[in-house]
Structures are given as structure tokens and as C-alpha cells.
């Protein structure tokens, strides 16, 4: 699904990614762990094409969706407009537009946001904004969904909502890469967790070793 081959990225004199090699299989949920500033977000942004890599290559077989840490919903558009604007631009003909609208409606109903479809982002809570951002990404049928710190700024109740949401996506075999500094959250939803340290992959572990993660993280980051 995704192949990252010897990727390096530098901002000025600061090297953020060092020779990162990684593969993600279709249907896999990859957790990217590590404290802030270790290169998680930059790696996601490079995969999405928001940043150019200095060397190496990133190959993705399919469309990539991206959920921003701060959602970046369009503030002058309602929930429904936020979700449907991009797909309607692409839809050629009335049938395609109708399909788009049906898909948007289905997604918003699935995410329990249909009742709030005419609200504006400023009128929503953090968790609701998150669901709109997710619907906006999913309506374009991405083959790979990248989520940057999906739990930041959420309270406990909202956090369990997000976990449930990502779980439901996982059950639908959506391929995802999720960056978070919250290990306990990543353990709940990932098939595999990678720990980034100073831009390098310091650990790549499967679910059988998830129990060792806290110890591993404390040995890596002190």
C-alpha cells in the first residue's frame, strides 16, 4: 500500500527525518509514536505531499486522506458544505453529484453528525469537529488515511468517541497511519506501532509486544 524508502527531511540545519524506511500493508493500522518534535507529523506530511523530501522516495498505491491535528475545517462553510464541497467539485453530472450527496449523508449519519449538518465549525465541540474532519476525508474514498494527533485537545469522553470511531474504520479495513504521543491510545487501535526518535525508527513492534511499550518508551526517552 505504502512504501517509504530511505527518506530524509531537513528544515534549515535541523534534520527531522533520517533515512526512514517503512512499509504499510493494505488494511493495516500503523501507530506512529514518540514525543513531540521527533518527526511524526513531518513523516505524515511527507506522505501526503505537503512537504517535499530531501532524499529517498515515498510510493503510495492509491489516494491519501489527511486529518489535521487542528482539523482545519473551513469556518465559513456549514458541516455539510465542508464535507461535500471537494467531492461535488469533482463530480461530473447529476448522477455523480447525487451519489456524492448520498455518500456525505450516509457518512454524517454514521458519525452521528447529520442532525448538526447546518451548523458552522465554530458552533461545534472538539469531538464534533473531529468527526466532520473525518467525514470530509472519508467522503473522498481514501485508500490510506493519515491522522495527525487525533486525540490532542480532547477530554476523556471525546477520546473514547474517537477510539470507537477509529475502531469502526479499522473493522472496515481502512488502511491508516496515526501519529500520536499517547501510547495507550495507539495500543487500543493499532496493528503495529513504530516509535520515532530523532527522526529515526527506533522500534517497530507488533501487538504481541505492545505490553513492553511503556518500558521501551521510557528507556528510549528517559
Amino acid at each position: 500500500m505504502l512504501t517509504i524508502d530511505h527518506v530524509c527531511k531537513t528544515f534549515g540545519t535541523h534534520t527531522v527525518l533520517r533515512d526512514v524506511c517503512l512499509q504499510i500493508d493494505r488494511g493495516c493500522v500503523l501507530g506512529l509514536a514518540g514525543p513531540s518534535g521527533e518527526g511524526k507529523s513531518t513523516l505524515l506530511r511527507c506522505i501526503q505531499g505537503l512537504e517535499t523530501v530531501d532524499s529517498g522516495s515515498i510510493t503510495c498505491a492509491g489516494r491519501v486522506g489527511f486529518m489535521f491535528q487542528d482539523f482545519q475545517l473551513f469556518p465559513h462553510m456549514s458541516v455539510l458544505e465542508n464535507v461535500l464541497y471537494a467531492p461535488l467539485l469533482r463530480a461530473k453530472g447529476k448522477i455523480a453529484q447525487k451519489t456524492c450527496m448520498e455518500k456525505g449523508e450516509e457518512l454524517l449519519k454514521h458519525l452521528d453528525m447529520w442532525g448538526l449538518r447546518n451548523r458552522y465549525p465554530q458552533q461545534l465541540s472538539g469531538g464534533q469537529k473531529q468527526r466532520v474532519a473525518l467525514a470530509r476525508s472519508l467522503v473522498l474514498n481514501p485508500d490510506l488515511l493519515l491522522c495527525d494527533e487525533p486525540t490532542s485537545g480532547l477530554d476523556v469522553a471525546m477520546l473514547s468517541d474517537v477510539v470507537a470511531l477509529l475502531h469502526s474504520l479499522r473493522e472496515e479495513h481502512t488502511t491508516m497511519a496515526i501519529a500520536s504521543h499517547d501510547l495507550s491510545f495507539l495500543v487500543q487501535i493499532s496493528d503495529r506501532i513504530i516509535i520515532l526518535r530523532r527522526g529515526c525508527i527506533a522500534a517497530d513492534i507488533g501487538p504481541e509486544r505492545f505490553g513492553d511499550l511503556p518500558q521501551l518508551a521510557s528507556s528510549l526517552f528517559g
Partner: peptide, 18 residues
């Protein structure tokens, strides 16, 4: 205007004009 708004539009494949 936050840079993220330009990036969100890019991620969604919205053309420069739109």
C-alpha cells in the same frame, strides 16, 4: 488566514482557482 486552510484545500484536491 491560517496556512492550514491552504493545506486542507490541497489535501482535498481542490484546484488553486477554487
Amino acid at each position: 488566514t491560517p496556512q492550514g486552510q491552504f493545506e486542507a484545500a490541497k489535501v482535498l484536491g481542490i484546484s488553486s482557482l477554487h
